[in-house]
Structure formats: structure tokens, C-alpha cells
């Protein structure tokens, strides 16, 4: 069981980064459906950078920068040029898939450099790692996973304790009110879309650098879309995103687990589970009514100050 939960943490990390990234973006009122594309861009750029430099941190940085660049394209089109957010997001996904597939053409089947691999091998956190059960599951993982924990904590503090977090909420809830109060709406939207994109890119990089540690076509395999659904499940709360990512991480590796336990269900049926579960989740989420659980009310609506 411990082993399964530990593997779940690994499987959930890309979802966690992507979900938190999309939450950051959506909090600013932009619905970026290009998460899948951003993850792919991050996955390949992280892999290529790490492969070329042999430096794991540069790889991670490369993924974040690439994801942020994807977010920037999205922000420019939807904020400055007021393009339709849904279609722009879909285009970003199509573009990202093509980009990753092209860039990765010569890398297919190649393994990440040793230095990178050892950098991302599990390390136990002193004290925390020694706690029975909890330690081995949560605190004997790799540094990338710990970085994920840190991101959740930081984003949570940022959302609920800082003034910028308050301004961000206002931008997503009512851009007009935020603008009239002196908040730079355009800047907030750009920054948070880029940061969100960077986090999605990191989620992709975790897939290519740590989880698979070998480049393969379409490495993200729909996780970006599951992340979009998890945002709804988490009702835009990073802590709940952690829970959601954990649940879905578990589902995604359930097949291996069942097979190793000698239970034989077709792999393809088990593979359907996370997708089917996502559907169940969005159906259940649609029944929420509390005001605090609602999406930002300006989500998907472009803002133009001089619009009359």
C-alpha cells in the first residue's frame, strides 16, 4: 500500500503543477484550455535543455520559460487582441502538440543524462521522512515533488494572504471593479497567465524528465485536460487541487497495481478510468451552489475599458 501511495505521489505531480497553473491563470479571469499544449511544450523544452546541458536545473528552467512563453502567446491573443479564449486555447494545444512532436523527433527513445537522473532520484527529508507511513509516501520522494508541495503552499499564501492575491481575485471576479480601484488589469492577466503557463510547463517537464525520463511522443497523454477538469473539482483552491491530483494520480497507475496483484482486467479498460472519473467529477461539480465554490465570475469574458 505504501508503495502504491508513493507511486501515486509521483503520478500526481504533473497533474498538480498543471492544475495549480491553470488555477492561477483562471483566477485572473482567463480560461486557457491550452494546458495540454503548454505541458507538451514544457515537456520537450525541459527535456531538450536538460539533454543539451546535462544540467537538471536548466532543464526545469527551460520548461518553465517555454511554458511561460506559451502563456504569453495566449495572453497576447486573448487580452490584447481579444481573441476567443476557447478557440485560442484549443489552438495552443494543437500548436503545442505539433511543436513537441517536431522538436522531439530526434530525441524519441533517448534517456535523460545521468546527472539529471541522479538529481531527481528520491531523497528523504530529515525528520519528516522518518514518520511512519506518511514519511515514505510523501517525504522520500524527489526534489521536484517537494518543489510541487512548495508551489501549493506559496500559491495558497499568495491567494489568501497577500494584497496582490486580493487584487487578483478582483480581476477575475470583476475586471471593471478592479480597474476602477486602480488595479492594472492587463498586467495582472499577463503575469498570471505566464506564471500559470510556466507551472503547466513544469508539469510537462516532470513527465519527461522524472516520470518517464525518456522522450516519447505525446508524453502528456491528456493529463492537461484532466488538469482543466481538476480545476473545477478543486473549486479554484490549490489545496483541494493537491487532493484532486492525488486521487487522479492514483487512478492513472491503478492498472499496473491491479496487474501486479494478479487481477486481470484489460489494460485498456483500466486506462479509461481517469477519463471516466473526470467526467463523473465534472458532473458532480456542476451541482455545487455555494458562492465560494463558483468560478471567477469574469472567467472567459474579455475586458476592454473603453467598451461602451
Amino acid at each position: 500500500m505504501e508503495g502504491f501511495l508513493a507511486a501515486t505521489i509521483v503520478a500526481s505531480t504533473p497533474l498538480l503543477f498543471a492544475t495549480v497553473g491553470e488555477i492561477v491563470t483562471e483566477k485572473s479571469g482567463l480560461l486557457n484550455l491550452g494546458v495540454e499544449g503548454l505541458m507538451l511544450i514544457g515537456a520537450i523544452m525541459g527535456f531538450v535543455t536538460a539533454f543539451a546541458t546535462g544540467d537538471p536545473l536548466l532543464g526545469v528552467l527551460g520548461a518553465a520559460v517555454a511554458g511561460a512563453a506559451g502563456g504569453l502567446i495566449f495572453a497576447f491573443l486573448t487580452v490584447s487582441l481579444r481573441a476567443n479564449q476557447v478557440v485560442t486555447g484549443l489552438t495552443l494545444t494543437i500548436f503545442g502538440a505539433g511543436f513537441a512532436s517536431f522538436m522531439g523527433k530526434t530525441y524519441v527513445g533517448l534517456v535523460v543524462p545521468k546527472a539529471v537522473k541522479s538529481f531527481f532520484s528520491p531523497v528523504s527529508i530529515p525528520l519528516l521522512g522518518d514518520i511512519p507511513f506518511i514519511g515514505p509516501v510523501f517525504f522520500q520522494r524527489d526534489v521536484f515533488v517537494y518543489f510541487g508541495y512548495l508551489v501549493v503552499i506559496l500559491v495558497t499564501l499568495y491567494f489568501y494572504k497577500t494584497r496582490a492575491g486580493l487584487n487578483l481575485k478582483a480581476v477575475g471576479e470583476s475586471a471593471a471593479a478592479a480597474d476602477a480601484s486602480g488595479v492594472n488589469v492587463t498586467l495582472y492577466k499577463y503575469v498570471h497567465t505566464c506564471v500559470g503557463g510556466a507551472l503547466c510547463g513544469l508539469g510537462g517537464a516532470y513527465m519527461s524528465l522524472v516520470m518517464m525520463s525518456v522522450w516519447q511522443e505525446n508524453v502528456v497523454a491528456g493529463r492537461g485536460w484532466i488538469a482543466v477538469a481538476l480545476v473545477i473539482f478543486a473549486s479554484w483552491n490549490p489545496i483541494k487541487a493537491f487532493v484532486g491530483a492525488f486521487l487522479f494520480g492514483g487512478l492513472s497507475i491503478l492498472g499496473f497495481r491491479l496487474q501486479s496483484m494478479g487481477i486481470h482486467i484489460s489494460q485498456y479498460w483500466v486506462d479509461m478510468l481517469p477519463y471516466a472519473a473526470t467526467i463523473v467529477i465534472i458532473i458532480l461539480s456542476s451541482r455545487k451552489n455555494r458562492k465560494e465554490n463558483q468560478p471567477p465570475s469574469d472567467l472567459g469574458i474579455p475586458y476592454f475599458r473603453e467598451e461602451r
Binding site: K161, T162, R163, A164, L166, N167, K169, A170, E173, S174, A176, A177, A178, D179, A180, S181, G182, V183, K291, E292, Q294, S297
Partner: peptide, 21 residues
């Protein structure tokens, strides 16, 4: 130009640049 889901206090605070928290 008020944000519905925020409290009166939070609305007043909105957009004030001074201070981090």
C-alpha cells in the same frame, strides 16, 4: 464597481499598492 464575493473591507483594500499582506 464592487466585487461581490469580497467583504466591504476587502473592497476598500483593493488596488492599494502599499504593503504586501
Amino acid at each position: 464597481k464592487l466585487v461581490d464575493v469580497l467583504t466591504a473591507k476587502e473592497n476598500i483594500l483593493l488596488g492599494r499598492s502599499s504593503g504586501l499582506f
